[in-house]
Computed example of a mutant assay.
Amino acid sequence: MSFNLPPNVILPVDEIDVRLDPAPHPFQRDNAEAIAAGWAEQSAGNPALFDGTMVLLSTLTYDKGRLSGICHAVRYSTFLHWRRHSDTHGAHHAFAHAMPVSGDGVLVAIRMAPHTLNAHRVYFAAGSFEPEDFVGGQVDMHRNMAREVAEETGLDLDAAQAERRHHLISTPGGVVIFRRYRFAQTAQALAAHIRGHIAADPDPEISEPIVIADAAARPAGLMPYMPALIDWHFSNM
């Protein structure tokens, strides 16, 4: 079975073995015409979209804390086509979430800018895996998280204390692999740093930081999987 993760359940991850296969992804190969047509429609509606390179899974399995998978480099247009057909057998998406935790135990998320694909949605700064996130053919989760968090917020994950264990939750929109990073600064100090980064960026991907102070907090625009992550954090501080 290519994918065996139970849906909407948070699972601990102690070992990650996700590798990049240089072969073309069968989903991209078999849907080339439909992908091209869909991209023409999407990019016409949002000219800011860029058909860059990312990765898509062809297999992902979980067994007793070990996550194993195979990825292939694809175009962003392929991912958008997969999003419209996410029940496709043999293809799935995963992305890594660094969860910034302030010195006062508060979560610091972000709201995406209006011109992005997930406009106005709230989640933790993150991005899809790219070929550069694979070292020796194997994914480096911290490398991906640190790059995406720095690009979007200006925060340095290497200045925070990373928890040893990752966790994951599998959703129809993809597998979220997350890890808490604890900063010494208060939530307000982290938010002020992020606002400064946004102000200095000529084309920011995010519009504002979102401080989540307790489990009851439900900011407008939360991605569907975010309430589960919020509840998990405040239940496992």
Rank of each mutant, 00 (worst) to 15 (best):
N4K: 00
N4Q: 01
N4F: 02
L5W: 02
L11Y: 08
E15V: 08
I16M: 09
V18A: 04
V18D: 01
R19Q: 12
L20W: 04
P22H: 04
F27A: 07
Q28P: 09
D30E: 10
D30L: 03
N31K: 01
A32G: 05
A32T: 11
E33P: 06
E33I: 13
A34K: 14
A34T: 13
I35Y: 02
A36S: 13
A37H: 06
S43C: 13
A44T: 15
D51A: 09
V55G: 00
L56F: 04
S58A: 12
S58T: 10
L60F: 08
D63R: 15
K64H: 10
R66E: 00
I70D: 04
H72V: 06
A73T: 05
V74Q: 00
R75S: 06
Y76I: 10
Y76G: 09
Y76A: 12
L80A: 02
H81L: 02
W82D: 05
R84M: 11
R84N: 13
D87W: 07
D87H: 10
T88R: 07
A91S: 06
A94K: 01
A94L: 15
F95N: 04
F95Q: 02
A96C: 13
A96R: 02
H97S: 15
A98E: 05
V101I: 12
V101G: 02
S102W: 02
G103T: 11
V106G: 03
L107I: 09
A109P: 07
I110Q: 00
A113S: 15
T116A: 09
N118F: 10
A119T: 06
H120C: 08
R121H: 12
V122F: 14
A125E: 00
A126S: 10
A126N: 09
G127D: 13
S128A: 14
F129N: 03
E130Q: 14
E132R: 14
E132G: 12
E132H: 14
D133R: 11
F134W: 13
F134L: 11
G137D: 13
Q138A: 15
Q138Y: 07
Q138P: 01
H142G: 10
N144A: 05
N144F: 03
R147N: 00
V149A: 05
A150S: 11
E151K: 15
G154P: 01
D156G: 09
D158H: 14
A159S: 14
A160Q: 00
Q161W: 08
R165G: 04
R165T: 13
L168A: 03
I169L: 12
I169V: 15
P172W: 06
P172V: 02
G173Y: 15
G174W: 05
G174H: 06
G174P: 05
G174M: 13
V175E: 00
V175H: 01
R180I: 07
R182Y: 04
A189L: 07
A189V: 11
L190T: 07
A191W: 01
A191E: 05
H193D: 10
I194L: 03
R195L: 11
G196A: 08
I198L: 05
A199V: 05
A199H: 09
A199Y: 06
A199P: 07
P204N: 04
S207M: 10
I210M: 10
V211L: 08
I212L: 12
A213V: 09
A213P: 07
A213K: 12
A213H: 13
D214C: 09
A216N: 07
P219W: 11
A228D: 15
A228Q: 15
L229H: 01
I230Y: 01
I230K: 04
H233L: 03
F234T: 08
N236M: 12
M237G: 09
